[in-house]
Design a protein around this nucleic acid. Structure first.
Length: 484
RNA sequence: GCCGAGGUGGCAGAAUGGUUAAUGCGACAGACUGCAGAUCUGUUUCCUGGGGGUUCGAUUCCCUCCCUCGGCUCCA
């Protein structure tokens, strides 16, 4: 297992990752409340932790990655009421859309998406534990957490309870003893989905599902908890208070990872502000890889300002500088089995490929510095660029060396498309392309440029784009697709 | 008010107590090319919010001020 440094919000320092039971790593990330279409802010968190899970797995850890789904809350009830839809059905619909967006984004590391309403027994047990231990009180059919009983409340976010401004944004509920108390169990209003409980019919409060789920799946303590910066307070604070009080064990989480928010013109992207850019639209107009690249081209902890019509366009230009050589190498490797060149790289360059991959690993293991890793990939691409004209003459092992950093990025960052082995169709295509390139070269040699351009045009219409490099010609698929 | 995160070139966005502050985008010039594209080379001089302090040396550490954003019980 590689040594990994992680920044932990609670201790405010970067520390070596020491799993509770190596090589296992329990990773819990706060997921969506799927009451509306997801936007590009939500997907950043998903991509960041996808990279975390990919990297840890590749470094020898056994990651159990859980992302919860809050499929019942006030907003869902409100939305459902407005559209005469069952709130949980509404959640299911949006969650299905989220899953398909995740597939498209190449986010496949989440092992389990528990839904809040599937954990009602665990939730009720945990609320009861908190009542029994004196950390919670029932009032008017609801149950509230008594924050005064938990002195550590505020440690994660640095808040002092007495300095909070009650009701700064959300009205204080009358049944609370103190404004900072938060609801564990909400008494049902007429017509709302409700479950029987020792306190009467009701439903879970916002924070309780996470700790009910993690105690069940991971036990009283686990390794890494992630989420957006905006969840630090009160949500994660409440999780600590709930779990540590209910189980009597501490700390709930060893490493808190908080992702910088996506903003627009400096302001947080959120549905309530109305300044959202839809995930669907981003995927449709720029594709999943460009979006992934955009997120990873900055440090995950920093805010990322999104400018519609600009950010993804620029990211697309930059990404192409990496993707193009990666694609050409992949194409050359596909073709190489049917007729390989024999030229080798200078020993120094081949060695540098090994060094580059090692350094990429080191950068990523330093609190997931994807931006710095991408900078190294650009540097590598510059060196690869010098060899592009020679691609057709290079040996398979030389091609593998040049491709190694891109393969690394494929595995770790989820970029550059599939990296599977070539199949029979790839080889047939490569042979056809080679024949066409040969015919065109002959036409060019005898000065018949009309014929040369006819061949190039015909291939382009079939989605095969040719590029001349001095005396050689390379080809690639779908590079100038007109979808965008 | 309190807590937290930020402020780096035309733009995006890293890093570090120490030679020219990464990388990319954009712009400009050149090389290569039948054309196109791609690629390469060079340029883009004065870029670390203001002011103090510590230090031989600060963008980095400390103090202070300013600005922006997030949170203060809906939030990725």
């Amino acid at each position: 297992m590689r040594r990994v440094q992680l920044y932990d919000t609670l201790s405010r320092e970067t520390r070596l990752l020491m799993p509770i039971t190596p090589p296992k790593v329990g990773l819990f990330v706060c997921g969506l409340t799927p009451y509306a279409d997801a936007h590009v802010g939500h997907a950043k968190v998903a991509v960041v932790f996808d990279v975390v899970a990919r990297a840890l797995t590749r470094w020898g850890y056994r990651v159990f990655y859980v992302q919860n789904v809050t499929n019942l809350d006030d907003r869902l009830i409100e939305r459902g009421g407005a559209t005469s839809t069952d709130p949980m059905k509404l959640a299911d619909q949006h969650f299905a859309a989220w899953r398909s967006a995740m597939d498209e984004l190449n986010v496949r590391t989440v092992n389990y998406y528990p839904h809040a309403t599937d954990y009602l027994p665990e939730i009720i047990v945990q609320v009861q534990q908190l009542v029994d231990r004196g950390f919670a009180y029932a009032a008017r059919g609801s149950v509230y957490y008594d924050v005064a009983r938990f002195p550590k409340y505020g440690a994660l976010s640095g808040q002092k309870v007495e300095a909070l401004q009650p009701g700064a944004r959300v009205a204080v509920e009358a049944a609370k003893r103190s404004p900072e108390d938060f609801v564990l169990w909400k008494a049902a209003q007429p017509g709302e989905p409700a479950w029987e409980s020792p306190w009467g019919p009701g439903r879970p409060g916002w924070h309780i599902e996470d700790t009910a789920i993690t105690v069940r799946l991971f036990g009283p303590r686990y390794d890494v908890h992630g989420g957006g910066m905006d969840l630090k307070f009160p949500h994660h604070e409440a999780e600590i208070a709930q779990a540590e009080a209910a189980t009597g064990e501490s700390p709930l989480v060893n490493y808190w990872m908080h992702v910088g928010l996506v903003t627009m013109k400096g302001e947080k992207m959120s549905k309530s502000l109305g300044n959202v850019y839809g995930l669907d639209e981003a995927l449709r107009t720029h594709g999943a890889e460009v979006l992934r690249f955009y997120y990873l081209n900055a440090h995950y902890r920093n805010p990322l300002d999104f400018a519609p019509g600009k950010s993804l366009e620029e990211a697309g230009e930059a990404y192409e500088r990496l993707a193009a050589p990666a694609r050409k190498l992949a194409g050359a490797l596909r073709g190489s089995s049917s007729g390989a060149g024999s030229r080798e790289l200078p020993a120094e360059l081949a060695e540098d490929a090994v060094v580059a991959v090692r350094e990429l690993d080191e950068l990523l293991a330093d609190d997931f510095n994807t931006r710095e890793a991408i900078a190294r990939l650009f540097v590598w691409s510059k060196r690869v660029g010098e060899w592009l004209p020679e691609l057709a003459h290079l040996s398979p092992s030389a091609l593998e060396s040049l491709a190694a950093p891109y393969r690394w990025a494929g595995a770790m960052l989820g970029l550059f498309g599939p990296t599977g082995a070539p199949d029979a169709r790839d080889e047939a295509l490569a042979a056809l392309a080679a024949a066409a390139i040969e015919a065109r070269a002959a036409a060019r040699t005898r000065g018949d440029f009309a014929e040369a351009d006819r061949i190039r045009g015909a291939l382009a219409r079939a989605g095969i784009r040719l590029e001349d490099h001095g005396s050689t010609t390379s080809w690639q698929l779908g590079a100038d697709d007109d979808a965008g």
